[in-house]
Computed example of a mutant assay.
Amino acid sequence: MSDEPARASAIADLMRAGREMSRLSMVFRYAIAERLGLTVSDLECLDHLADTGPATAGQIAERTNLTTGAVTSMLRRLQQAGYVSAERDPTDRRRVIVTLRPERVADLERPYERFAQRTAQLIEDYTAEEIRLLARHYERMQAMYHEELDHLRDSDTPPRSA
């Protein structure tokens, strides 16, 4: 007897759970951004800087999928709000290096504290092997998202009108 129906059902459950997790993650991000008086793009930019360190405006545009003009406006807002500093690259004056201001990191982390504590409790009973499986899954999903974003950016197909 084949295990195919059970596997197909498990895959459908996984896909459904992934879509719901993605949706809830987005709703959560919007709520956090609103609480901080930011847009979701602002928050994505700040998260990127927190994860990777200083970045150019072009790198931020790529990460957030915004135009360079939109990134320029966003960076102006974030500078005025005191979240980032932006300095000309000394080796290439055409580029701007954006840095998250360390004194603002706690402000950005505070809304996530409860979620981080609950996540730690959630995985408390997971084995190291189970956690590594989840980490591999997330890493593979991230790689796939990057590939799909590149494909969408490079595609000759124009966006569909609503």
Results as ranks from 00 to 15, higher is better:
98 V>C: 02
35 R>P: 00
123 I>D: 03
68 T>Y: 06
114 R>A: 15
49 L>I: 07
18 G>A: 15
78 L>Y: 08
29 R>V: 04
100 L>C: 02
33 A>F: 01
141 M>P: 02
106 A>R: 12
27 V>H: 02
44 E>C: 05
46 L>I: 10
92 D>R: 07
4 E>L: 15
89 D>S: 11
13 D>G: 14
35 R>N: 04
157 T>I: 13
2 S>L: 05
12 A>H: 07
124 E>S: 13
13 D>A: 15
142 Q>M: 14
27 V>Q: 09
83 Y>M: 03
154 D>H: 11
40 V>I: 10
19 R>S: 09
149 L>N: 09
22 S>T: 14
161 S>P: 01
37 G>C: 07
60 I>Q: 00
81 A>E: 06
161 S>G: 12
23 R>Q: 14
123 I>M: 06
155 S>N: 05
47 D>T: 09
146 H>V: 10
145 Y>E: 15
153 R>F: 04
18 G>R: 14
138 Y>A: 09
65 N>D: 14
54 P>T: 01
16 R>N: 14
13 D>W: 02
150 D>E: 15
16 R>F: 07
126 Y>K: 01
63 R>L: 07
4 E>V: 14
126 Y>V: 00
110 R>Q: 13
141 M>N: 12
48 H>W: 07
74 M>K: 03
3 D>S: 12
143 A>G: 01
58 G>S: 06
54 P>M: 04
103 E>N: 08
137 H>D: 08
8 A>K: 12
87 E>R: 08
86 A>I: 03
16 R>K: 15
54 P>Q: 02
47 D>F: 09
140 R>T: 08
24 L>C: 11
63 R>T: 06
67 T>N: 04
118 R>A: 12
41 S>W: 00
15 M>Y: 04
136 R>M: 11
68 T>E: 12
62 E>F: 03
120 A>W: 07
133 L>K: 10
122 L>P: 03
39 T>M: 05
157 T>Y: 00
70 A>G: 07
11 I>A: 11
10 A>L: 13
147 E>Q: 13
86 A>E: 05
89 D>Q: 06
75 L>E: 00
42 D>E: 08
41 S>V: 08
95 R>I: 03
